[in-house]
Computed example of a mutant assay.
Amino acid sequence: MKLKHLLASATLGLATMAVAQDDPLTVGFVYVGPVGDGGWTYEHNQGRLAVEEHFGDAVETVFVESVPEGPDAVRVMQQMALNGADLIFTTSFGYMDQTIEVASQFPDVMFEHATGYKRTDNVGTYSARFYEGRAVQGHIAGQMTESNIIGYIGSFPIPEVIRGINAAYIHAQEVNPDVEFKIVWVYTWFDPAKEAEAARTLIDQGADVILQHTDSTAPQAAAAEAGNVYTFGQASDMAEFAPMPRISSIIDNWAPYYIDRVQAVIDGTWESDDTWDGIGPGMVGIGEMTDAIPEEIRASATALKDSIAAGEYHPFTGPLNKQDGSVWLEEGETADDGTLLGMNFYVEGITGDIPQ
């Protein structure tokens, strides 16, 4: 696998040192999928391009796409560091341990790991509150379904994905008590063939609305072939499938974060930190709600989005029970971040088991 736009540059001596004005910073990005996936990796790459545009000649970027979560990731990160990367963003949950390993070998290089929770002096973490967008999607989906069956394509049964399923179900069930979720796990972030097959399976099971936590547009294409099935864009707008079947989307906006963290390195102010932002700060966006959604549903979904953004409403607000009927949140109680970050249970009403 070859580095794209591989550039050599001297590393920073220490994380606390500011980069000289005439010494360009080299920033690396490690991607789990191809930059053309139309979803997760596409949006991270848009952030990289925004860094290039913002800083001009002061920053050079490198990236490697389609890096498996395993030993290959270690080799790619090591090669980036050896070739002069001063700051490296590793953009998938499964890179967590590899990022920590390589960071220990290159203490003068700064690392940022997306969606993970392990930090060291030279490893920071960042993620987005995708569950806020899932709540808005569920609110729309629960009112758009006629079969009362909503399909959900899950990637891996990690807390991030489980949170999204729960948030979508809670808000679908709130507007439609008869709604049922059917979940298919594909154990991949990006595999168009598997994603399309999962979508077709859900459609065969009666789903007329499909949500996904996978990265390609294949479920959108499968829904378009089936007809009369609604979908939502994942990570990016996927607007090529609007106004049908893609009726709205969750958009991951990484550019402001990437620009801020690169600037911190240049200024010599970078420190290991954890960032978890949502709709309010703009890290999570809601794509255009097309005219396929009735006006009153668009209005109520917009009101929900605005209340989340303003901090007036938390998508996990009690009363809520766990799947087994035990009380999780009392009336008016909201979930704490620790529980959300480690979420390993479904809420009451979702059938089936979480794979182990």
Rank of each mutant, 00 (worst) to 15 (best):
A8Y: 11
L14S: 11
A15K: 09
V19L: 13
D22C: 05
D22M: 01
L25N: 03
V30M: 09
V32S: 06
G33D: 13
G36S: 10
G38R: 02
G38P: 13
W40H: 06
E43N: 11
N45V: 02
N45W: 05
Q46H: 11
Q46A: 15
V51H: 03
E52T: 08
H54I: 00
G56P: 07
A58T: 05
T61D: 09
V62Q: 08
V67Y: 06
G70I: 04
R75Y: 10
Q78R: 14
Q79K: 12
M80K: 10
G84C: 09
L87K: 09
I88L: 03
F89H: 11
T91D: 14
G94D: 15
G94A: 07
G94E: 14
M96T: 13
D97I: 07
D97P: 00
Q98M: 12
V102K: 00
Q105Y: 03
H113V: 04
T115C: 13
G116Y: 00
Y117L: 14
T120F: 02
D121C: 00
T125I: 09
Y126P: 01
Y126D: 02
R134F: 15
A135Y: 12
M144V: 09
M144F: 14
T145G: 10
E146D: 13
S147W: 07
S147V: 12
S147R: 10
I158H: 11
G164I: 10
I165Y: 05
N166L: 09
A168M: 07
Y169H: 03
A172C: 08
E174W: 00
P177Y: 00
D178A: 11
V179P: 08
V179L: 04
F181G: 06
I183W: 02
V186T: 12
Y187I: 01
Y187H: 04
A193R: 11
K194T: 06
E195F: 09
E195I: 03
A196C: 01
L202F: 04
Q205G: 04
Q205N: 07
A207L: 03
I210Y: 10
Q212F: 00
H213G: 06
S216Q: 10
T217D: 15
A222D: 11
A223T: 09
A224D: 11
A224K: 15
E225R: 13
G227M: 13
G233F: 07
A235L: 02
A239M: 13
E240Y: 06
E240C: 01
F241N: 04
P245I: 01
S249Y: 01
I251M: 03
N253I: 13
A255S: 12
Y258L: 05
A264P: 07
E271T: 15
G278Q: 02
V284T: 12
G285T: 02
G285A: 05
I286F: 03
G287V: 01
M289K: 02
D291G: 07
A292K: 10
E295F: 04
E295T: 12
I297V: 14
A301L: 02
A301I: 01
K305A: 06
S307H: 03
G311L: 09
E312Q: 13
E312W: 06
Y313W: 15
H314I: 02
P315E: 11
P315L: 05
G318P: 13
N321Q: 14
N321H: 12
N321I: 00
K322L: 14
K322T: 09
Q323M: 05
D324W: 11
G325P: 15
V327H: 12
V327T: 14
L329W: 08
A335E: 10
G338F: 10
L340F: 04
M343W: 01
M343E: 13
N344K: 06
E348C: 08
I350F: 01
G352S: 08
D353V: 10
